[in-house]
Amino acid sequence: MMHWNDTLISWMGAFVLLTGFMTVVFRRFGNVLGCYRLQSIGFALATAAVGLDLGEPHLYALAVLSGVIKGYLVPNWIGGFARRLGSRAEEKMAVSPAVSLFIAGGLLLAAHIISRTAVGSASAKVDDLMIALALLLIGFFFMVSRSHVLSHMMGILFMENAVTGAVVMLSSGLPLIVDLGILFDVLVGILVMSILVFRIQGAFDSVDTSELTTLHG
């Protein structure tokens, strides 16, 4: 008999994978941001459920903090950048959404094989590892398949989400101070990247990286 928070962890695993697939389908930046929001909330709920499972109170704090920061503050912040940059409605993609989906499916399969060879199929955590690895690869694919600078930023955030999620779901999480450090790192990373984004915008009048082919002073 499955306990209800096991069910919640299992559900959230499927949910974050779902949002991972959704990110590669959407053409509009606003929808991608919405996916990030949902994925972060999914990870936060999974963190809380793991905390309940193990009786680790510091995971509750992490769940609340990461839910607020990554589920609310960061998406709003980046949404503000997108508005200021006045990005166009639909962005250029290297491959069509349907093809991206099949690539994402292939990445899931790769993650499946890698996770099975890494920890062996007997381990109960092998599917959590698979999901986290798949999300990491999908985030990376998201980053390389799009040309908008903010999409590159989102790709990094998706990968960060996957790595943090893997840490929480596979072990009981890191000490709170380390987790807080990682969260702070995300914020500083966004700050630095946003400065770079606005520098690119100022120098090239475009945030499309496929147009960054000529040198400007």
């Binding site: 779902l18 389908v25 959404p97 989906l101 092998v126």
Partner: peptide, 25 residues
């Protein structure tokens, strides 16, 4: 032409579900 995105999404989801079933979750 975006219909393919929706149905392709559904297809990948069902394949993923089948993968989970095949590995016994």
């Amino acid at each position: 032409f975006q219909m393919m995105d929706l149905l392709g999404f559904a297809f990948v989801l069902s394949i993923t579900a089948l993968l989970f079933v095949a590995t016994g979750v």
